[in-house]
Amino acid sequence: MTETNLSEDTRSGAASPTEHPDGRDWWPTDYDPSPWAIHSPYSDPGRYRDLLAAVPPRIPALSAVARNLIIHYRASGLDLPEETKDEINARWVATILDLDQQRHSGPLAVERDPMTRVQGCCRDHSLFSAAVLREHAVPARIRYGFSHYFLPDYDFDHVIVETWLPEEHRWLRFDPEIAEPMKLLPTPQDIPHGPDSPFTTAAESWQAYRAGTIDPQRYGVAPGVPVGGDWFLQGAVFYDAAFRAGIELLLWDGWAPLSSPEGLTADEAAAADELSELIIAADSGDADAERRLIDRVRTDPRVGPGTTVQTNSPYGDPPTTTDLTAVQA
């Protein structure tokens, strides 16, 4: 792992810094982002460390490599190979790299034919990008929430990346799937924070739902897909909490505290209320809230997944039980 100060280098090519909605520098001067400079079991490249280290830790460059390596199994619009469709369950970066290297040898930046890329989704693009930054000792984490920039009238569940800029003393958000500015996302390499931004965290979206300011039926996987609504918003809060603790699950994993399409219960809603308050406090620079959030995810079965999850299938196949301790390289 290369130790280096990469504030300016990392954000090379990004737009000018955005401000916190209230205009102040809200991160405490003693805030320590270093835990996110260390690989989680999910981002650890294993025997492919040299390949990952060769990717420049600059947002435009590493995002391009992520798109070159991984293709969205659904949103690409391509008729991707049936024989590789199960690659969407490659939860470990080491597994993603292994799948890639079985078809391509050599540097990850060498152009891949789209039909030979590893099938995945936004979670995989973001986890790979975070893995590159962590390999260079740059703090990075992935966030689960909702994008408001793909369509003007629908809010897609989505995963993006945060990386710490020490010289600017802030977490910068970027979307590695987006190569160029969009009408609804003019700064994909420096996404503003806050409840009115183009990307809102799961906690912000949940609290907006509880306040009655959003229509939950607009929030989900995609228009016309019956996976969305209030129960989906509730589960999103738990996903983002797990991500915060370095448990970077697949987006179709499930565990006990999450609500289901059968209906959101009062207890499930109350649990999401409590968790969303912790997340938002942590996002506002409250180090104690952040510690309590991570501890609860890792130790409280009413919040975290523990050692096993039920892995559902976007294709409608029967669910399976996944052992999260069985890291695949």
Results as ranks from 00 to 15, higher is better:
E277Q: 14
R112A: 07
W206K: 03
E290W: 10
G212M: 12
D267E: 13
P305N: 09
E268L: 00
D323W: 01
L62P: 02
R74A: 15
D157S: 05
P176W: 02
R134I: 03
S129G: 00
S260I: 11
L249K: 00
D44E: 15
F199N: 02
V303M: 06
M115Q: 10
L278W: 02
D317G: 12
F150A: 07
R103V: 08
E177P: 00
D317I: 14
A66V: 01
I279M: 14
G224K: 06
R11H: 07
D124P: 03
G220M: 01
L108D: 01
T320R: 11
L251S: 03
D230L: 14
P166L: 07
C122D: 03
A109M: 05
S129P: 02
G120P: 08
S76K: 14
P314V: 08
H125M: 09
I191Y: 05
A326G: 06
N68A: 15
V161F: 02
G246Y: 14
I247Y: 12
A202K: 10
G228R: 08
R67K: 13
A61R: 04
D273G: 01
I178T: 15
I70S: 12
A202F: 11
D288G: 11
Q101P: 06
G254N: 04
T95E: 15
P17H: 07
G212Q: 13
R11V: 12
L133C: 11
Q310H: 12
I160E: 03
E168W: 03
G306H: 07
S313Q: 00
